[in-house]
Design a protein around this nucleic acid. Sequence first.
DNA 1: CCTCAGCTGTTTTTT
DNA 2: ACAGCTGAGG
Length: 753
Amino acid sequence: MFYSDPTRIQDLLEGLNEPQCQAVTSQSQYLLVLAGAGTGKTRVLTHRMAWLIQDQGYSPFQLMAVTFTNKAAKEMKNRVSDLIGIDARNLWVGTFHGLSNRILRIHAQEAGLKPQFQIMDMGDQLSFIKRLMKDFNIDTETYKPKDLQYFINDQKEQGLRAEQSEDTYSNPHFEKMKSLYVLYQERCESEGVVDFGELLLRSYELITRNENIRQKYQQHFAHILVDEFQDTNDLQYRWLQLIAGTEGALFAVGDDDQSIYAFRGARVENLFDFERRFAKGSVVRLEQNYRSNQGILEAANAIISHNKARLGKELWSDKTSEHQIYVVGHERDFDEARYVVNKIDTYRQSGVHLNEMAILYRSNAQSRLFEQNLVQQGIAYRVYGGMRFFDRQEVKNALAYLRLLGDPHNAYAFLRVVNFPPRGIGARTIEQLTQNLEQTGQSYYDLVDTLKLSATKKLQAFKEMVQKWTEQAHMMKLSELLAWVINDSGMRLYYQNQKESVDRLDNLDELVYATEQFCREYDLEGYHAFDMITFQGIQMRLLDAFLSHVGLEPGERHVGDTTEDAVQLMSVHASKGLEFQIVFIVGLEEGLFPHANNDMPEEERRLMYVAITRAKDELYLNHAGYRRLHNMEHYSAPSEFLLQLPEHLIQQRGFPVHVKSPKSFGVRRFGQLSKTQNFASGNQIKTNSKTVYTSQNEHNGYHVGQQVSHAAFGKGTIVSFVGSGESTQVKVAFKGQGVKTLKLSMAKLMKLS
DNA sequence: CCTCAGCTGTTTTTT
DNA sequence: ACAGCTGAGG
C-alpha cells in the first residue's frame, strides 16, 4: 500500500515563498511555472507531488512526472520519498524514454515488439546504419552514415515515419534518405531493436491507435508534471498532450531563458504555445533566487534582456553583493589559463574548497590548457563530459554477450562478439553469412549450423559456448553469469595480454559490480539470470530488465573518484542546474562564445545567462585576444556579452587590442573602453589613451563586418579571419546558410557597398 | 590478426 | 593539434 506514513504528515507548504506556494497548490488544469535559475523549481515539483498525494488524496500512481535525465528523475523520487515517506521506486517518475519504454514493455504485443526488444544507443545505431548501408552497397561518401542517422532521428523527433517525411529543407539527398529510412526501419523491425526516437514514437502511435490503451492511460493519469519544459521536442510535447487527454492536468515547469538545446530538437516555442493555448492566465513566475548575490543577478538580467523572444522575468535576491564581477582580458589563451589557475590556487590557500570553484567553457576542447596548468600546480580537478561508463568498448563487448544470451537472434550482439576476442572468424566469413541471411530470413545464430564454410568449426564452437552459458544461466545469479562469461569468452585473458589495459579490466569488474548493485536496488538479489521477475510492475526476465535498464541509463559522464575535493571543469551546457561559489567563465570572445557556428544568437545569449547564474559569490569573465584552435591562429574581439554588462558592476576591465603592424604583431595595448564600441563591425577602436586597430580584423583590403557577395552562397558578412599569409581563411555568415569558412585567396568575394 | 599511414572532422548533449 | 576510423600491407 502506498498511503503516506501518518507519522510524517507535515505542512508541505511551510517555508515556501508566495509564488512557490501558489504553484504547488494550483487547481488549474493547466499551469505553466516559469522558474528562473536557482528559484527552487525542483522544490516546487516535489512539493506539488507530495501535496497531491498527501493533501489531495491522489494515489501516487495517478501521477506521472517526466524529466529529461535519469539524474533528475532519481532526485525527484528521492525527494518525494523523503517528504512523505513512500517507496518511490515504482512511481511513474522518469525520463520520456524511460516511461515510453515502460509502456511499450507492458504492451509489447500490441506495439508489435518482442517482449525482450533491445534498445540501441547512438553508437549502436550508427554501427547498425553502417552495416545496413554496406549490405545494400550504398556509397558512404555520397551518403554519410552520420547524415542518415541525423535524418532518421530528426524525422522521428518530428513524429514522422518515412512515408510521412517531406522535404522541408530542399535537401538534394532527400529522396535517397527517405528510401534509406524505409530500409532502416524494416531492418529494425526484423531484428527486433528500437532506437531512442522509436521508443517515443512507437508509444505515441500505440496510444493514439489503440483506443483501449488510450482510455486506460488518459483516465489513469490525473496529473502530469513536466520538468525542463523548454527542452521538449515536437513529439514529446504531443506525447504529453496525448497522455493527459482532455481531462488530465498538465503542470509544466520550465524557463524560456534557459533553453539551450535547440540543436537536438528542443523547441522553446512549445513553452510559448503551451502558455497561449492552455495556460493562458495560469502562469506562475518564480523570480526570487536563493543562489546568487544581487550583483550577479543584475548582470544576468542585463544580458538576457537583449533577447526578444521571451515571456519575461527578472531575478532578484535579498543577498547583497559583497563582491564585484571581474572582467579580465588576456593576451593569449595560455595567459588566460595561467591566470585562472593562479587565482584558484590563491582561493584554495585562503580556504575555499576546490569543488566550490568551476571553470566553464563553450567548447570542451578548451579544457586542455587548464588541465595542463592545474597539473603543474598540483591542483586536483575533474573534467566532466568524457566518455560514459557504458560507452566504453570493453563494457559494450561484455554487454553484447549478455544481449546475445537475452536474444540469440540479435544481429548486433552476434556480430559484435562473434570474433571478439579474436577467434579466427574473419570478415570473409561474416560476409558469407550475411549473404545467406537475406535469402533465408534466418538469423546469424541459426545460420551457423546450416552453412558449410571454412570457418564452420569455429562458428560452431562459438555457438556451443553460448549454448553452454544459456543452460547454466538458469542456475546462476546475474553477476555470476556475467563474471563467468567475461572469463570463459576469453575477454579477460585478452585484455590481460594487452598493454595498458588495466583500466579495461577494472571496468569489467566494475560492470559485474553494477549488476549486483542493480539487483540490490530493486530487491532482486535472490533471482537467477533467466528468472521471471516483476520490474516496475511488469513481468520479465531479470536479464531483460537489466539490459533495458543499462540501455536507458548509460552511467555517469565523468571518471574517477567523485568525492575528492577537486576543481570542476565543464562546458556551460553541462553546468546547467549546478552552482558554485566561484565561477570562471573563459573564452569570452566573438566566434567562440557566442559561437560562430550557431546561427541562433539568442540561444548563445541564453547560454551566457546560464553560465552567469551558476555563480553564488564571485564571477570572473575571461577573454583572450589570441588563441590556437584546430592548429590555427584565431584573433578575436571580446564577446559582445562583455559589452552588455552594466558598467557599475564591473571591477576590472582590460580589453587587449592587437595593434595593426607587421613588426609588432601581437603587441597589445590596454585601455578603458566605452560600452558603445563595436568590435565586430570595424577595425578602429578607441581606448582612453589612443586609437588602435585590431590586427586581424582586416586582411587584403577586406575587413570584419564587410558586406560581400559570393558566386555560390550569395550575400554575406565577414565574421573573422583565421590564420595568416597565403593560407588565410575567412569566415563569412551567409544569409540563410550559416557561417562558411573559405580560403581567402580562392574565395572570390565581391565587396558590396 | 595486428599495425600504421592517411583521411576526416573538430559546439553544445540526453535518451 | 589531434582523435577516431578505414584500408593496405606485414
